[in-house]
Simulated scan of single mutants.
Amino acid sequence: MAVYLTQKSKVLVQGMTGAEGMKHTRRMLAAGTDVVGGVNPRKAGRTGDFGDRRVPVFGTVRDAVEATGADVTVVFVPPAFARAAVTEAADAGIGLAVVITEGIPVHDTVAFCAYAAERGTRIIGPNCPGLITPGQANAGIIPADITKPGRIGLVSKSGTLTYQLMHELRDIGFSTCVGIGGDPVVGTTHIDCLAAFQKDPDTELIVLIGEIGGDAEERAAAYVREYVTKPVVGYIAGFTAPEGRTMGHAGAIVSGSSGTAQAKKEALEAAGVHVGGTPTETARLVLARLESGTRRHS
């Protein structure tokens, strides 16, 4: 099994005909993803040429869904058009929208996340690398060649740290890796992924990567304590970040004592999560937990 994305997923790419859309559609296809169409109102009726695969371009998401049965969309459109793109996908009945675009105004994100939730569409992102179920499908920009199918579930705010942990633990592999994005508002949270991995029979251990800013990791710790029986290993980025300065992600900012890396680390450890001091140490903790074969509360 997998979380959110499987080999049966039929994927659209909104913005496929742009430079980034073409590049990453080619990579998704190479990873085995069933990319069934692109969406661009100005280029409807054309096709995208990806070597031995020609992908049709549709004028609307609804047209694409009706023609292909697509249930996932990956959004590469510019920030000004992201809200309309996600709204269109939700109206067409898409079940999963992966919003890669960064720089989307927070009020637009709040609006399209609420709209999508009302219509049963899950949002991954925005400002995220997407998600990958190794050996099955890849929706977004995560490199597919740095890992293999395995036993670890990964949820992360950071794209770069997602890639690093995937590489560090490549010999074990992953069930699914989800990059939820680092903006102040995201459609899918750490808690959503923890719940999904807890239910997934192919996930034996969960890796949670957080960063400074907000209280998402503290809330995730509370959820782990109450509901998660599988072992969880964590890493928090930003111990050396100066107070009051945004660090890379729009949501990664510390104000006073709120949102510090230390506070998040302490909350996770109090919930029984082993927290590494570096990505490499985090990988070692994962290996140790898997070798011990223990449940989180043992």
Rank of each mutant, 00 (worst) to 15 (best):
R46Y: 06
R225G: 10
V86W: 02
Y227G: 03
S175I: 00
G130R: 07
H190V: 02
G130H: 07
A70S: 13
K199W: 10
V273L: 07
P279K: 09
A195Y: 07
D71C: 04
V186K: 00
K264W: 09
E281D: 14
A44H: 09
D183A: 07
A111H: 07
G213L: 01
G248F: 03
V106D: 12
L290R: 05
R53Y: 01
V39Q: 13
V13K: 06
T203F: 02
V72H: 01
N138K: 15
R122W: 09
G213C: 02
G150P: 11
E66Y: 07
T33A: 13
D91A: 08
T188R: 01
V110H: 05
F239C: 01
A283P: 05
I141P: 06
Q7N: 15
G48D: 13
R62F: 07
P41Y: 06
P105Q: 03
R245D: 01
C177W: 01
I124H: 01
M247S: 06
V286R: 00
A67H: 07
G48H: 08
A283I: 09
D202G: 04
G214N: 06
G59A: 05
T121P: 11
V3K: 09
Q164C: 03
L169R: 02
N40W: 11
S292L: 12
G125T: 11
D34H: 13
H167S: 15
T240K: 08
V86K: 03
A117W: 09
T280A: 15
T60N: 03
S257G: 09
C177N: 02
I142M: 12
A271Q: 02
G179K: 08
D63Y: 02
S9Y: 08
K265S: 09
R53W: 00
G238H: 04
G120R: 10
R53E: 12
T47F: 14
I124R: 00
D183W: 00
A263D: 09
E66T: 13
E269Q: 15
M247K: 04
I212R: 06
V110L: 14
N40I: 12
T189L: 02
S255E: 11
V74T: 09
T188D: 01
T73V: 14
T25K: 08
V186Q: 04
P126Y: 08
A252H: 05
R295N: 09
I94Q: 08
H190G: 04
E266L: 13
A139V: 13
A252R: 05
V106H: 02
E266T: 13
V207Y: 04
D200S: 06
M28F: 05
Q14C: 05
A222S: 14
A85L: 08
A70Y: 10
E291S: 15
L29P: 04
P184F: 08
V286H: 00
Q164V: 12
V11W: 00
R46L: 15
Y115Q: 04
R289C: 14
V186D: 02
G173D: 12
R170A: 15
P143W: 10
T260F: 00
A82T: 15
D63V: 04
Q164S: 05
I123M: 13
A90I: 06
T278K: 02
A117C: 06
K23P: 00
L12K: 09
D215V: 11
R245G: 00
R42A: 14
T133Q: 10
A196P: 00
A267S: 12
H297C: 05
Q14I: 13
